[in-house]
Design a binder for these strands. Structure first.
Length: 564
RNA sequence: UGGGGCGUGGCCAAGUGGUAAGGCAACGGGUUUUGGUCCCGUGAUCCCAGGUUCGAAUCCUGGCGCCCCAGCCA
């Protein structure tokens, strides 16, 4: 894994071009990247863009990619997040090998470097309060003012910093600041805070420390320690690059990484803000971080999205510096694309309607051959039991059908997939006028679904033998938000889609569906992709709808509604 | 408002001075035992205005628009 190929892949993005150029010019002999999550929440669909970029570049150029937790703020970070993040990255299909690191591994080194900086007269301990520091910072148009402590003797700062570490001061009492330029037009250079006092339990270092480095003082140096060549981050850190470089240049670090920024991912109908996602979970709007409606990796996994679809999606959207909002349809397309190729086809009836074939023998059960996946011959076939009493989808029958409806209707003949042609002879209703049963006849000559005389029904329906049907609960999911730009004109919570989850009980599925393992997504023919939920138990099947199939009939219906 | 970025069809996105790739979506049509899949077809003069050039989305100048920064968050 040490051979370096300086050839960029075809049509590389601007970051890959930079990497390739650095390799070709000999600036670097190999490439080392890193994915640096803060363990303060679960990974969401925005992260794979960065993960695939960092791990992808490392792979393509024969380098390596580290997983490094940016754990410098113990108040927000938890072990649960550290664990879930690793599980999610692995599930996505990426491997950091032996290269698992934590910024907290470098706390001692970072502390030493801070001392170096003080000795060099480039950092000082400030006694100002947070409010006072803000007041001294100035504004976008006015320069800041120097802190009265800015020029205190080095020895005094050294002593104070050491006592900060020893725990002699309460939170917020003092802070270590870089001495750069309070008049800089870049606010990040107006003597940024480097260390703050936080008497908090850290998930990794426990109570060994009560001062913690700020992001700016930890990230670049961690990169340098690990020999990262290209430190890829999102656009909002562009303003921090001068500070990143200043620290690298003013500290005796072992290497000089280069920070490169790209635009983070945004998707329609979804919100990717850890703060907001945490609220959804904590305030009970969803079942948890892994709720199938959540844009988290664990939510998408539970929803049945394959990792390959997510990888294809991020490859499809590209990498650039222009802010953009990708349509969810693209994600859904990527997912359907892999599922169409790989998902087993099964029969399931969500809203059952009884269909009785009057001229079919009472005691007979036939075994019909059904293809498991028309896109993959190696998936083989299965037997479907067929009997006189069946269940079909309520939506597949209309007593008084409109012009474009070509499923079952009184007097109409349709094909029952893999079985026979049936014709509706009678509609049975209950006292309330509800349709409760369809009486039909079948044509024995059409066994398997083809007629010897070349008759071709306009529709093919899926069905379940009543005698063999297995009950199941099915949870239908839709976008978490009811509009493409949630929160655009007000509170995000006002835009939550009240119909994002619909639980259906009394669904009936074919016997083979009891065997699908959690983690596998199958296609319920003509309905969509579904996967067993972890809530399933023997005899208590629960399925989540991953996505519907593309549905041109639904589109026709919607147009009809809107036309009037 | 000072600084930093960005601006190519509805949405992503190639293009790096030689006459606008591709994908998604939408809309037509064909195939089809999933109204699925698959196949075919349909759309831009590149934020605007000047300029340089035989020739500019690509270079120059000036505008306009959008995003980010005033945490002891990352």
């Amino acid at each position: 894994m040490s051979i370096t190929d300086p050839t960029p892949p075809e049509r590389a993005d601007f970051i890959r071009e930079i990497v390739a150029a650095d390799l070709q010019s000999g600036k670097h002999e190999g490439v080392v990247t890193r994915f640096p999550p803060e363990p303060n929440g679960y990974l969401h669909i925005g992260h794979p863009k960065s993960i695939a970029l960092n791990f992808g570049i490392a792979n393509e150029f024969g380098g390596r990619c580290h997983l490094r937790f940016d754990d410098t703020n113990p108040i927000k970070e938890e072990q649960e997040y550290i664990d879930s993040i690793q599980a999610d990255i692995r599930w996505l299909g990426f491997d950091w090998g032996e290269h698992l690191y934590y910024a907290s591994d470098y706390f001692e080194q970072l502390y030493e470097w801070a001392v170096n900086l003080i000795r060099a007269g480039k950092a000082y301990v400030d006694d100002l309060s947070a409010d006072e520091i803000r007041e001294h910072r100035g504004t976008f148009t006015e320069p800041g003012k120097n802190s009265p402590w800015r020029d205190r003797p080095l020895e005094e700062s050294l002593d104070l910093f050491e006592r900060m570490r020893k725990g002699e001061f309460p939170d917020g009492a003092r802070v270590l600041r870089a001495k750069i330029d309070m008049a800089s037009p870049n606010i990040n250079l107006r003597d940024p805070a480097l260390y703050r006092i936080l008497h908090a339990e850290h998930p990794r270092t426990g109570d060994r420390w009560c001062i913690y480095p700020m992001y700016d003082f930890a990230h670049g140096q961690s990169d340098a320690i690990e020999g990262i060549t290209h430190s890829i981050c999102t656009l909002e850190f562009e303003d921090h690059r001068p500070l990143y470089d200043w620290l690298i240049e003013n500290l005796p670090v072992p290497s000089h990484p280069r920070q490169i920024e790209f635009a983070r991912l945004n998707i329609t109908y979804t919100v990717l803000s850890k703060r907001f996602l945490r609220r959804l979970v904590n305030e009970g709007h969803v079942r948890g971080w892994d709720d199938p409606r959540m844009p988290t990796i664990s939510g998408l996994r539970r929803r049945g999205f394959p990792a390959e679809g997510i990888r294809d999606f991020v490859a499809m959207i590209g990498v650039g510096k222009a802010d953009s909002i990708v349509e969810v349809a693209m994600l859904e397309h990527a997912v359907r694309d892999v599922l169409n190729r790989t998902a087993l086809r099964r029969f399931a009836v969500l809203r059952p309607l009884k269909l009785v074939i009057e001229n079919y023998p009472e005691e007979l059960t036939e075994e019909m051959d059904a293809v498991n996946n028309p896109e993959d011959a190696s998936a083989g076939s299965r037997k479907l039991p067929f009997t006189r009493e069946l269940w079909i989808e309520r939506d597949d029958f209309m007593e008084d059908p409109p012009k474009k409806f070509f499923r079952l209707a009184p007097g109409r003949e349709v094909r029952l997939r893999y079985a026979y042609f049936v014709t509706c002879r009678e509609v049975v209703k209950d006292a309330a006028g509800e349709i409760v049963e369809l009486r039909c006849t079948y044509d024995p000559a059409t066994r398997g679904g083809d007629s010897p005389d070349g008759r071709r029904p306009k529709a093919t329906l899926h069905w379940i033998s009543a005698e063999h049907a297995t009950p199941a609960e099915v949870r239908l999911y839709d976008h978490l938000f009811g509009r493409p730009d949630p929160g655009a004109d007000g509170d995000l919570f006002d835009d939550l889609n009240p119909a994002s989850e619909e639980v259906l009980n009394g669904c009936l599925v074919e016997p083979a569906l009891a065997e699908v393992p959690v983690g596998e997504t199958v296609q319920f023919e003509r309905l969509g992709y579904f996967c067993p939920d972890a809530d399933s138990a023997p005899g208590q099947l629960v399925f989540n709808r991953t996505l519907t199939l593309r549905d041109t009939w639904a589109k026709v219906q919607a147009q009809g509604t809107h036309a009037v």
